[in-house]
Design a binder for these strands. Structure first.
Length: 465
DNA sequence: AGATAATGTCATCTC
DNA sequence: GAGAGATGACATTAT
């Protein structure tokens, strides 16, 4: 994993170099800094390891008690080499814990983003979209008039579901309102881009919540409080053909039909209207109506319907924008443009609508972005934990190897002493180990060589050079 | 009342 | 070139 990580970083930086030649040239400082980090990391690690251990790296290359490794008996040499080579195989320089900053991690490890439970992450990332797109996914259309039970199925409903399922009563209401406002039912239904909205003249408007006085209703896509249906129509005849958006009422009506047959007061409405509010204004989000301890907000809402509106909703209302903020944001660009072209709108209105759309899109994007960033941070924290554990394991391994080297060194020393204790010169006197050294040749013979000669010949390393 | 988290918005960049 | 998405930075609001 450690290796993977550093390789990933290296690979990414290589990619930067190859794919972004210009930017690579433009960012020499950044790259050199990365390399500095690597080098720094390596030196730090090595310094740490040598500090902690008994200088193992110097043992194989230099003489032990006056005997070089190449000079010791083959069986000991092989033991020492095995200890040494295994220590080298650890490749401690690869175990450097890079100082990876978050920005680099986000840039260099894009795949990391979804490393932590990708499915959940995907679901998370889609969460805002789910809220907002709950009306727009055409793939989930269900047969007309099939009203799913509630809640769970409701979440899967799309706008077309809702429309298909819509009781024709609602569109009857639209017809009535359209007649009253001068808008044709066709225009209204076009807003949904429904080829056949299933309009029925037999429907009755009062089957919906709109007929309930003192109930929450949706105005310009927001949750508001209306004392009467009349309040919905107070802007008739405004510029842009503004009237209280029958189609939005349809949304609400349908939801009411599907999930809220009973009392409508303070019920959760399945719109995501979490737009910013002016200071001190409670948000009319669904949470506002469901979370405990938020009843004050509800009562606040009851007092002042307009205060429930987000800024954009208030602006939209002020300019008599004939669409809901929700729609403006969620609508595909083609529908959006055709919608704009179908309605006579002032420049100010068009400008506001585009602003509303931009802000709405960006709000969702910001939410997704923050979730991704959070994921990256969590993944990096995981990496830190794993690397720390790995570092600890390597430390322990190193300690064990140092102990083994110490034991070998002691054995070699004892053997050396034993050999010299048995050696006698021509006069039968013991050979002084401080003046002589044992030197083995490749054919298995050994010589007792004065140490001056050994030093003249130089250490094996020097001889190689 | 101040600290911190959460959220919205804008500017800018990239695709 | 327009639009959408991503993201840093900042402001505002909530806790």
């Amino acid at each position: 994993m450690l290796r993977e990580k550093s390789e990933a970083v290296d690979h990414s930086s290589q990619q930067e170099e190859t794919e972004e030649g210009e930017s690579a040239q433009a960012k020499p400082r950044q790259q050199s800094k990365k390399e500095e980090n690597k080098i720094e990391g390596a030196s730090t690690w090595e310094a740490e390891t040598t500090e902690a251990g008994n200088e193992p790296s110097t043992l194989p290359e230099h003489t032990l008690e006056g005997i070089s490794v190449e000079d010791i008996p083959p069986f000991l040499s092989s033991v020492c080499e095995s200890v040494n080579s295994s220590a080298q195989n650890i490749n401690l320089s690869q175990a450097i814990s890079h100082d990876v900053n978050l920005h680099e991690a986000m840039l260099l490890c894009p795949n990391n983003t979804f490393r932590r439970d990708p499915s959940a992450r995907y679901a998370e990332a889609q969460e805002p979209s789910l809220q907002l797109n709950s009306h727009t996914n055409p793939e989930q259309a269900t047969p007309a008039m099939s009203l799913p039970p509630v809640d769970n199925q409701m979440k899967n409903l799309t706008s077309q579901d809702l429309l298909y399922d819509l009781d024709s009563n609602i569109f009857d209401g639209i017809n009535l309102m359209s007649l009253a406002t001068g808008f044709s039912p066709l225009e209204v239904s076009q807003l949904f881009e429904e080829p056949d909205s299933g309009l029925s003249l037999n429907s009755s408007y009062n089957s919906t919540s709109l007929t309930n006085s003192n109930s929450y209703c949706i105005y310009n896509g927001t949750v508001g409080y209306n004392n009467d249906l009349q309040s919905l129509c107070h802007d008739l005849g405004a510029v842009g053909g503004c009237y209280p958006e029958p189609h939005k009422h349809c949304h609400m009506d349908h939801r009411t039909i599907v999930g809220f047959h009973g009392s409508l007061e303070c019920q959760q409405v399945f719109h995501d209207h979490t737009y910013h509010l002016q200071s001190g204004v409670p948000e009319p989000t669904s949470e506002s109506f469901t979370w405990s301890g938020k009843s004050q907000k509800i009562s606040g809402c009851l007092d002042n319907p307009d205060r429930n509106l987000s800024r954009d909703e208030q602006r939209a209302k002020a300019l008599h924008i004939p669409f809901s903020v929700d729609e403006i944001v969620r609508m595909p660009v083609d529908s959006f443009n055709s919608m704009l072209s179908r309605h006579y709108l002032t420049d100010l209105q068009v400008s506001l609508i585009r602003d509303i759309r931009r802000r709405g899109k960006n709000k969702v994007a910001a939410q997704n972005c923050r979730k991704r960033k959070l994921d990256i941070i969590l993944n990096l924290e995981d990496d830190i934990c794993n690397l720390r554990a790995k570092k600890e394991a390597l430390k322990n391994e190193k300690t064990q190897r140092n102990k083994a080297i110490g034991i070998m060194r002691q054995k070699l020393h004892d053997l050396y002493q034993d050999v010299f204790n048995r050696l006698r010169d021509d006069q039968g006197r013991p050979v002084n180990p401080s003046h002589y050294a044992l030197q083995y040749s490749h054919d298995g013979t050994f010589l007792i060589v004065p140490k001056e000669m050994v030093s003249q010949k130089g250490s094996p390393k020097e001889r190689r050079n």
